[in-house]
């Protein structure tokens, strides 16, 4: 089993689903953004509430309460598991069976923040996130929640605009199909030399009259992406 950061779940229907787990660094930064947003809201509304005397102070205290305890819960439950900070890092909270986070689980993980914060600066949370397999802080462990990257970005197909699709004459496994597609999309911006080098590896498998292995592999990749011409 190779090392990876994937959470796998088998549905009752026997289908494997997976999600890519998000770890300490992006989560910390997302938290910082949320923290900043909360501070700004409290400051701006605090200034407005100053004009309402004691009643304003009361409203401000309620606002602090809401920002401290309910801000993450409300966003996670009603905005698809994403607080604004998480959204900016393209991560979201989900239940550990990969369903959208439930209200109860979100409340548990956010109430238990109190435990993660201890003794200072989220140190327990940091230790927990670094040492558990699924990067869970204490609140996540108790609530049974994960933080994962949301849907991968749509692929950029500009690399195959001028390539002619070629129907493969071979039976390709899923992994091989993915390799052809990735080659065609040139996800990593490989150099032309490197592309040729890789394509030449499978030269014996290609039809005998293939002149340019790179073009052939890219063409098949394009065809596999669903383009028939």
């Amino acid at each position: 089993m190779k090392l990876d950061t994937i959470a796998l779940v088998e549905t009752p229907e026997g289908i494997d689903l997976q999600a890519e787990l998000a770890g300490l660094v992006p989560r910390t930064l997302a938290y910082c953004i949320d923290f900043f947003i909360r501070m700004m809201i409290m400051m701006v509304l605090g200034i407005i509430f100053m004009f309402f005397g004691k009643a304003g102070t009361g409203l401000w205290l309620i606002l602090i309460f809401v920002m401290e305890w309910w801000y993450p819960v409300l966003f996670e439950v009603f905005k698809g598991g994403q607080t604004p900070g998480k959204k900016s890092f393209n991560i979201k909270v989900i239940n550990d069976d990969l369903t959208p986070v439930s209200f109860g689980a979100s409340l548990i993980r956010n109430l238990l923040r109190t435990a993660d914060v201890l003794p200072l600066f989220y140190v327990f949370g940091i230790i927990s996130m670094s040492s558990t397999k699924h990067f869970q802080r204490l609140g996540d462990l108790a609530a049974g929640t994960l933080v994962v990257y949301s849907e991968p970005e749509q692929h950029d197909s500009s690399a195959i605009k001028n390539v002619a699709a070629i129907a493969p004459q071979l039976a390709l496994s899923e992994d091989q199909q993915v390799a052809f597609v990735n080659f065609a999309l040139n996800k990593g911006r490989m150099s032309a030399d490197r592309q040729a080098e890789i394509a030449e590896i499978i030269r014996p498998r290609l039809p005998l009259n293939t002149s340019n292995a790179t073009d052939y592999v890219r063409g098949v990749g394009k065809w596999l992406l669903g383009s028939k011409h």
Binding site: A167, P168, Q169, L170, A171, D175, Q176, V178, A179, N182, F183, K187, G188, R189, M190, S191, R194, Q195, I198, I201, I202, P204, R205, L206, P207, L208
Partner: peptide
């Protein structure tokens, strides 16, 4: 991995490992 297409290279090399030159490259198994 990105720049050098390691993922693709590994997959292609695995594929070639099972390859015996006697087999027809144009397989009818589509």
């Amino acid at each position: 991995i990105e720049l050098e297409g390691w993922d693709i290279e590994i997959c292609f090399r695995d594929w070639m490992r099972n390859y015996t030159p006697s087999a027809e490259p144009v397989s009818g198994g589509s």
